[in-house]
Amino acid sequence: MVRTRIKETPTFRSWEDVDNALREIAEAEIDLLDIEGEMNKQLQGVKLTAAQEAKPIQERIKVIGKDIKAFVEEHRGELDGKTKTLNFGKTGFRKSTKVMLPKAKDKLAVIIKSLKARKMNDCILTTETINKDVLKKYTEDEIIRVGATLKKEDTFWYETDREKLQAFQQ
C-alpha cells in the first residue's frame, strides 16, 4: 500500500472571505454573550431562591448547636472520656492547640531572628521562584548564561469588531 500525502488547501481565497469569516465569528460571539447573560440571570435567581430557602434551616442548625454545646458543657462529667456517643451522633471535647503569632511585621521579624538563633530553621518557610517577566528583560546572552532559554515564535491571532457589527445590524 502506498502512502498518500493530503495537501490542505486554504478555505479562504481572498481578504473578503477572511473578513466575512470574522463577521461570522463576531455574530457567534454576540450570540454566546446573549446565552451566557441569560444563563447568569437564571443562575442568580436560583442561587437567591436557594439562599432564602436555606437561611431558616441554617439558623435552626446554629441555634440547636449552641443549645447542645451549653448542655454538654453543663454535663461534662457524664462524658465517656471526652466523647459521648448517642443514637444520632457524637458530641464531646477535643484538645485543640494553636500557635498564635503577632500580626506586626517587626514582631514577626524578632520571632524569625529568635528561631534562627536557636537553629529552628525548619519552622521558617522560604520560597524562591524565578520571575520570568523580569528575566525576559535581560539580553538573550544573559538569559542563556544563567541556564534559561528564549522561545520565539509568531503566534497567530484575530480580533472581531462586535461593536461595528452590532451597529451595522441595527
Rank of each mutant, 00 (worst) to 15 (best):
F93L: 02
K47E: 11
S114H: 06
I112N: 08
E153K: 02
I6C: 02
R60S: 01
T155R: 13
K137Q: 12
G77H: 12
S114M: 05
E140K: 07
D31G: 05
T85C: 10
K84H: 03
E142H: 07
L48W: 09
E163Y: 06
A117P: 09
D34L: 08
E74Q: 11
E8M: 13
T149I: 07
K152D: 07
I64V: 10
K69F: 09
V99M: 13
P102W: 01
I25F: 01
A109K: 12
I57W: 13
K107C: 04
E159D: 09
E140P: 01
T129W: 01
K151Q: 10
K82Y: 11
L48R: 13
A51R: 05
E142P: 01
T85I: 14
K69I: 11
T9G: 01
D106A: 04
E140F: 00
I57A: 10
N131E: 11
L43R: 13
P10D: 04
A117E: 12
I61Y: 04
M1Y: 06
E153R: 02
M1F: 07
G37K: 03
S14L: 05
I144Y: 11
A50V: 12
K7P: 03
F168K: 15
E140G: 00
D19F: 13
D161R: 09
E53D: 14
R23F: 02
N20G: 12
K137T: 14
T11F: 14
L125D: 13
T11Q: 06
K152L: 15
K98W: 03
L125Q: 07
D31R: 13
A117M: 11
E128M: 08
H75R: 08
I143Q: 02
D34W: 03
K66W: 07
Q44L: 14
L165N: 03
K90T: 10
L43F: 12
E163S: 02
T149W: 06
E159Y: 06
E53R: 15
D161C: 07
F156G: 08
C123F: 11
S96M: 12
I112V: 15
I111G: 05
K132W: 07
F93Q: 01
I143E: 00
P10F: 00
K116G: 01
E27T: 10
F168G: 02
K66P: 05
D161Q: 09
E36K: 09
E159H: 06
D133L: 04
P102A: 02
F156K: 08
A28W: 09
K66G: 13
G81N: 10
E53A: 15
D67L: 10
T139M: 08
F156C: 07
I144W: 09
A104Y: 04
K55E: 06
H75V: 08
K82S: 13
P56G: 03
L135W: 04
K41S: 10
E78H: 07
T9W: 03
T129K: 07
V72H: 00
T9R: 11
S114Y: 01
D141R: 04
K164W: 04
V46I: 15
V2Y: 05
K113I: 02
E59V: 04
Y158W: 15
E78I: 04
V146L: 12
E38K: 14
K82C: 08
A104F: 00
E142R: 02
A28P: 00
